[in-house]
């Protein structure tokens, strides 16, 4: 008899574990940075998907792409409108490719992680928070390079009474520094919580349904609820990538134009 439990992941946290397939050892220097892990494998899969979405769908460089190209056009159009609305001014075009790259990467890796037995790239806290810290640090460097010390004007909202300025600067600075964490934490925590929720609910339901025939039939009612949770997770996968984009564009606006 087929043992269903054995086809299921035993620990809900197993899915986030990354394994090393291949690594180089030298006695001279630390080569751990070049290990091929599950993480690297899935990064390459995401890269291949994104490249194929562009290379395969352009209908051999004709004026009109194939039907597949509509998805690309829609994503591109959405991104252009979002970034234009968020940033305003004239500089949005310089940063649109950068933000678009982030959107595509997060969207594709989020949706890829929704496939059963897949690996959630965006639930890796170290990676995502490094990414958001990188974005934040780059923007801070850019702000200081562009505005010099005037950059600190970002921390004083317009029309503040002079008495409140020290307090507000403190609060605004805290919130500005916390952006580096919150941008990534929002994404990674959402994705990780979603995947844990799905797998825990699924595991409980599987145990419930494997008791006897009656519970198997009864189990279809909670199965519908789990289906709703899965649909919610799909929505979260898309919404979170969009949220990252909107926030990144608005942070970029803060840095470029100060208010």
């Amino acid at each position: 008899m087929l043992n269903l439990i054995n086809t299921f992941i035993n620990s809900p946290l197993d899915q986030f574990e990354s394994q090393t397939f291949f690594s180089i050892f030298t006695p001279f220097m630390d080569m751990n940075n070049f290990n091929i892990t599950t993480f690297a494998l899935y990064t390459f899969i995401v890269l291949f998907i994104i490249i194929s979405l562009f290379m395969f769908t352009n209908n051999n460089n004709m004026i009109m792409g194939s039907k597949w190209f509509i998805t690309q056009e829609m994503i591109y159009d959405t991104m252009v409108n979002t970034i234009k609305n968020q940033m305003g001014g004239k500089l949005w075009g310089f940063y649109m490719p950068f933000i678009y790259t982030f959107f595509m990467f997060i969207l594709v890796s989020n949706l890829l992680s929704m496939i059963p037995y897949s690996f959630a790239l965006t639930a890796q806290f170290v990676f995502i928070i490094s990414l958001s810290f990188m974005v934040w640090l780059g923007m801070t460097i850019m702000g200081f390079y562009k505005h010099g010390l005037v950059f600190f004007a970002l921390f004083v909202p317009q029309g503040t009474p002079l008495v409140l300025v020290p307090l507000l600067v403190l609060i605004e600075m805290m919130s500005y520094i916390m952006r580096s964490l919150s941008l990534g934490l929002r994404l990674a925590a959402n994705v990780m919580a979603g995947h844990l929720l799905m797998i825990i609910l699924g595991g409980l339901l599987m145990q419930f349904m494997s008791i006897n025939i009656l519970t198997t039939i009864l189990g279809f009612i909670p199965l519908l609820i789990i289906l709703c949770v899965v649909m919610l997770e799909f929505a979260i996968a898309m919404i979170q990538s969009y949220v990252w984009t909107v926030l990144m564009a608005s942070y970029m606006k803060d840095v470029q134009y100060l208010h």
Binding site: F94, Y95, P97, F98, V126, S130, F133, M134, V135, W136, L137, G138, M139, I141, M142, Y145
Partner: peptide
Amino acid sequence: PIVKPLWPFFIAAAVTYYGV
């Protein structure tokens, strides 16, 4: 243009990589 608008992010990426 890639390097001209994005060079702060390259520096930031190097710093983050080293730090992590």
